[in-house]
Computed example of a mutant assay.
Amino acid sequence: MLLTDFDYDLPEELIAQTPAEKRDHSRLMVLNRQEQSIGHEHFFNIKSLLKPGDTLVFNNTRVIPARLIGHRAETGGKVEVFLLRRLNGNRWETLVKPGKKARIGDCIKFGDELTCTIKEHTDFGGRVVEFFYKGIWEEILDRLGQTPLPPYIHEKLKDKERYQTVYAKENGSAAAPTAGLHFTKELLQELKDRGVNLEFITLHVGLGTFRPVNEKNIEDHVMHTEYFHIDEQTAQRITAAKKRGSRIIAVGTTSIRTLESAAFEDGTLPAKSGETGIFIYPGYKFKIVDGIITNFHLPKSTLIMLISAFAGREFVLKAYNIAVQERYRFFSFGDAMLIL
């Protein structure tokens, strides 16, 4: 399939620059795959669209202050180090800007309490760096690091917690699983009271989720791997729900990729940890996911390809064109879509 098959026209003013005043007051487009119908709701009404026994699966990763601004020890030149994932100890996989000047052995200083040395190149143009510091890493990072907002967001975020889900728990992401940003603690409780099961898995969002596709033929694109974890009890409950015929509804593309990476062909979900580089595009046969809650994604991205694999490319692009006509808000702080 061609990259251009997943393009659409999006006016720049529809890219949401700030989150909705209340998390669950965003709009919600509702897609029914069987009926090929498209409806319009508000997110707080999602409880009326879900059934008792449904299982929502959330990604409980938490965004770290992954953007560090420092200076070269030798020249004083400004350098940005963007943390992607921890490899072991104090070694991290990163993106360094400007990259051309980031040579092996270079030392970068972030004030008096933190430095790093570039150790090696990565196969995607990044760098492996080793950090040196005295004290507690998390506290130092919280002081010196910045919350990394996507490049299409130009407004400064007043409350950095708005780029975290209310259930964020496991530190490690370079970006938020944005479909979950619409949920409030009150809405989660209302869903539980209605008999909807809430389950939590982890995928630390890294380069694989937001790396652009540059190949004309999408099958030639290679995903970068990201770490995921599903614990034993969660896996057992989701498997039991699937076997009794309950719908497994993934909240966000990262939850989809985690579930589909781990699941067996019969829909059984084992406890599992590891790296996934799964690339889902049309033609993929879903093993466990029956429904999706997601945001509106970038043109020609792996994310819109994933959604197209689930709901059909033509149906998804039709929905996106309607969303543009209806002035929905797009991307990370934008509106949501429920696909059943």
Results as ranks from 00 to 15, higher is better:
A102R: 04
I15N: 02
V222C: 06
F6L: 04
S301M: 02
D193L: 06
K243D: 06
K318R: 12
L141K: 15
F286E: 03
I46M: 08
L14P: 05
R127G: 12
N214G: 00
Y328V: 14
H71R: 15
I288M: 06
H224M: 07
G105F: 07
N45V: 02
R127S: 10
H40S: 09
K160M: 09
T258E: 11
L306R: 13
V128T: 07
G245A: 08
P98L: 06
Q17M: 11
T302Q: 05
K156G: 01
T268P: 01
S246G: 08
I322S: 03
E186I: 05
H71D: 04
R211W: 02
L187M: 10
K318C: 12
K185W: 00
L31K: 03
T234D: 01
E80N: 04
D106G: 00
T115W: 01
I304V: 09
L2Q: 14
L144V: 10
E155V: 10
G206L: 11
V289C: 09
E80M: 05
M29A: 12
F183G: 08
A263F: 03
K272W: 15
E190P: 02
D24S: 14
N88H: 11
S255Y: 02
E260L: 14
E219N: 14
D231L: 01
A16F: 06
K109Q: 10
L157K: 04
E199G: 02
E138V: 07
L269N: 08
I278N: 00
Q236R: 13
G252H: 03
R67L: 15
F333W: 00
A16L: 04
L14S: 06
E41T: 13
E260F: 14
F264N: 13
L3H: 15
K47M: 01
K185A: 03
D290C: 06
T165V: 12
K78W: 03
L188G: 13
F331S: 02
W92F: 11
N59L: 03
L269Q: 06
R72S: 14
N88S: 15
L149D: 07
E265Q: 12
L198D: 01
A235N: 05
V222N: 06
M1S: 13
P151S: 08
